[in-house]
Design a protein around this nucleic acid. Structure first.
Length: 192
DNA sequence: CGCCGGATTTAA
DNA sequence: TAAATCCGGCGA
């Protein structure tokens, strides 16, 4: 699964792939690439720390972090071991296990936006810090599997990175399935 | 050691 | 538009 390559390329390769945990199956519809210390928007921007250590690990592992004091974010580690990069899973569609997802997502109704947003994706899968470093390519727990690739891909700047340099803020490292409704801020995206 | 602010979501 | 809510990273 082409994860051992630069984050932006790996990010595109992750669109359409599946995240499976027990009866819940999600199809990835939106992602964002984050690079190493040279990327001022990345958690790796201050170098290696206990929190971001998984980003330097082998590709195909999970990197989970807690944000805004209430949300877990799921990333797929990419690139060669020893170099920091990861792909944030931003949105997904529910292919199976809808009852379980609705139960976990509390008040949410079954709309195309049910898992549109990184916090929502992690919540739908019931993820937390115990999945940090988990091998997504091995059977058991949370698994990443092949799925139907998107026909058209949309590209645009990453969201929520106002703290980054102007250059990194406009870097077109957000990717989405052009045919999916589970995508945030469609207006800021354009065809690849 | 204390402060600042964040790869967000939700409801008003 | 703002509140919820907490910990990582930085400066002192």
């Amino acid at each position: 699964m082409e994860l051992n390559q630069p984050a932006d390329l790996a990010a595109r390769a992750l669109l359409g792939r599946l995240l499976v945990r027990e009866e819940v199956r999600l199809r990835i519809t939106e992602v964002e690439a984050y690079g190493g210390p040279e990327d001022s928007a990345s958690h790796a921007r201050h170098g290696r720390t206990a929190r971001n250590a998984p980003m330097w690990g082998p590709p195909g592992r999970a990197y989970l972090y807690f944000c805004y004091g209430m949300h877990w974010m799921l990333n797929v580690v990419t690139g060669p071991e020893g170099e920091a990069s990861a792909v944030l899973i931003r949105s997904a569609e529910v292919l199976a296990g809808l009852d379980r997802v609705l139960d976990r997502r509390k008040a949410a109704k079954n709309s195309p936006q049910l898992c549109a947003g990184p916090g929502k994706v992690a919540q739908a899968l019931g993820l937390d810090g115990t999945f940090d470093g988990h091998d997504l390519l091995a059977p058991g727990g949370l698994e990443l599997r092949n799925g139907p690739r998107p026909v058209g891909i949309l590209v645009g700047p990453r969201l929520g990175i106002g703290f980054a340099t102007a250059e990194d803020q406009v870097r077109p490292w957000r990717f989405a399935d052009g045919d999916s409704l589970a995508v945030l801020q469609r207006k800021t995206l354009h065809s690849l």
